[in-house]
Design a protein around this nucleic acid. Structure first.
Length: 277
DNA sequence: GTTTAACCCTGCACGC
DNA sequence: TGCGTGCAGGGTTAAA
């Protein structure tokens, strides 16, 4: 389930591995993945012969800058990942788009559940893309200060988990990391944002940064379904360090109370009923 | 402004 | 063993 840390790992891997490479040709095996384009050709023609110049991230979106002033936008959805491969190894059945490079080797977009997508946009038209224009501040940016964060909370009365997962509020946090952040800050998912003391706001702010950085340090969460892997097919290890998510019935690492799983907004939410208040 | 539900799709568990 | 059914899973958006 790629969230900010997983997407950031992919961004870093791509930055090291594909910047400077020139695209030879592109194969789209499943048009659904490029659903914003009317035809395959409209997509592939804008990539063929182009050199990749830089890799950026906006929330959970990855932006591959091209030397044509176009940008290849990538969203991993729920089960997507990107892998570097040689043409020798046959692509598995969930490989939907293959980008071949002039220097050999290729980039494969793999996504079992097909919620991910790729599209090409002119760089100066990016701000007009609905999903990108509303993306809020990145919690790992320098400008995400404690003052800024507490300012965001002013006048809002929303449950904390809803707020954390709201990409218009802060970008990059999904179901797994929101549970971890709330556990780390000792706050319940259904606490209302305007009920926090300034000490609790500070704890939440710290937890957001620490948990996300931890996720990056451990190269992301790879669950049993193994849908997320880095560019080289290597699994992350953050799943071994989770304190709440996926630990239903297991003792809380702080107070030994069994972790509870609750159905919340059509999602699983894991928390400690004792030490998260 | 906030909450809820539905949708996207595949794999898997379950019952017959 | 094989088939059909139902549901989990995350992000987004439309509707309430």
């Amino acid at each position: 389930m790629p969230e900010l840390p997983e997407v950031e790992i992919v961004r870093k891997d791509l930055e090291r591995d594909v910047v400077g490479r020139k695209v030879k040709d592109v194969t789209v095996k499943l048009p659904r993945i490029i659903r914003r384009h009317k035809t395959r050709k409209e997509f592939t023609d804008r990539l063929a012969g182009r050199k990749i110049t830089k890799i950026e991230r906006r929330g959970k979106y990855i932006l591959l800058g091209l030397d044509s002033d176009d940008v290849l936008v990538m969203h991993l959805g729920m089960s997507g990942h990107v892998e570097r491969a040689t043409g020798r190894k046959a692509p598995d059945k969930h490989t939907h788009v293959i980008i071949k490079f002039v220097t050999g080797g290729e980039l494969r977009f793999v996504d079992m559940r097909q919620f991910g997508e790729l599209f090409v946009s002119a760089r100066d038209a990016l701000d007009g893309v609905k999903e990108l224009q509303h993306i809020a501040i990145d919690p790992l940016e320098d400008s995400f200060t404690w003052q800024y964060f507490s300012g965001l909370l002013v006048g809002r009365q929303v449950k904390l988990k809803t707020l954390l997962m709201d990409q218009k509020f802060i970008s990059g946090i999904g179901n797994i990391y929101s549970d971890e952040i709330l556990w780390a800050s000792g706050l319940r998912h259904d606490r209302l944002s305007d009920s926090l003391t300034s000490q609790e706001v500070r704890r939440l702010y710290r937890a957001i940064q620490e948990v996300l950085q931890d996720g990056i340090r451990h190269r992301g969460v790879t669950l049993e379904d193994e849908t997320y892997k880095d560019l080289y097919g290597v699994a992350g290890s953050m799943q071994d360090h989770l304190k709440a998510y996926g630990r239903e019935g297991q003792p809380c690492r702080r107070c030994r109370t069994p972790i509870v799983r609750e159905r919340w907004s059509n999602r699983s939410t894991y928390f400690c009923p004792q030490c998260q208040v």
